[in-house]
Design a protein around this nucleic acid. Sequence first.
DNA 1: CCCATTTCGGACACTTTTGTCTTTTATAGC
DNA 2: GCTATAAAAGACAAAAGTGTCCGAAATGGG
Lengths: 152, 152
Amino acid sequence: MFSKACEYGIRAAIYIAHQSKLQVRVGLKDISREIDSPEAFTAKILQQLVKHDIITSVKGPAGGFEMNRESIDQINLYHIVCAIDGDQILQGCALGLKECNPQHPCPVHHPFKVIRDQLKIMLETSSIVGLASEIKSGLSHLKLNPINDTPI
Amino acid sequence: MFSKACEYGIRAAIYIAHQSKLQVRVGLKDISREIDSPEAFTAKILQQLVKHDIITSVKGPAGGFEMNRESIDQINLYHIVCAIDGDQILQGCALGLKECNPQHPCPVHHPFKVIRDQLKIMLETSSIVGLASEIKSGLSHLKLNPINDTPI
DNA sequence: CCCATTTCGGACACTTTTGTCTTTTATAGC
DNA sequence: GCTATAAAAGACAAAAGTGTCCGAAATGGG
């Protein structure tokens, strides 16, 4: 569905939002440990999120990543996915045809449009802070406790 | 959404079904020309479809690919997608977590399940012959006429 | 049997994605 | 200003996906 980069990006964004709501700025090491992702690769993805103004970064001692208070509630899954994978999941012909539009559709055009429209709505209505709050309340997790396999 | 291989595979299957309904066996050259795909790569994908018993092949002069009369009406998009891409679009955690299930879900588990269930139903209810018949009736196309950009 | 045709199978090459490493740049504390 | 710290940037490496090529195997027609 999503690229690995996008998977890591979503997990990182949720974790950063989670900590930012607690007024905590988090570093790369923290993030990659807490979302169980390769550190250097995660750094590249975080750079993309910074460039797309989804998160902000601060260099130097006590630096790290955070989401500022104004925009944090506006960010949703659609923003992250577009920033990293682009919208080729939602855009373009599902069969890769050059010419495919409602007038001259490919055979799967219409059924796919229904699914994609629903997917887009779901991504747009899934706010990152909302997903982060599920973590806090223990309803969901990004990484299980390796000792007893329960949410941390 | 799908890999290139899967896109070509679906297009090829629809074209083969279309011709098989007319009792016509088609060769690789025909197929790759009519669905506008790289010939050698398409050959590999057709081999996969043969191995998964979705199409049959005949070697030698007047050989080619076809769908036999018993199974042709049973084949749907889900069969093709699983044969080529596997079911990782529908299976496995959307965020790539090792541990993700209804008891210990990732943050996007439940909203994604809804979308995936609908996607699966759509794939299962899209029969290849149904899609092929749309081509015949001119409702959809796999390749536009390069001369006047209308369905062939 | 012989030959032309067509799929099958394996090896190879190119591109993109994934992932790592090293150097540079910015910043906070002294 | 100096130093330690942490992100940014770029080069590099490994893996997967995409695509090509060529010989082998099968088959139908003379």
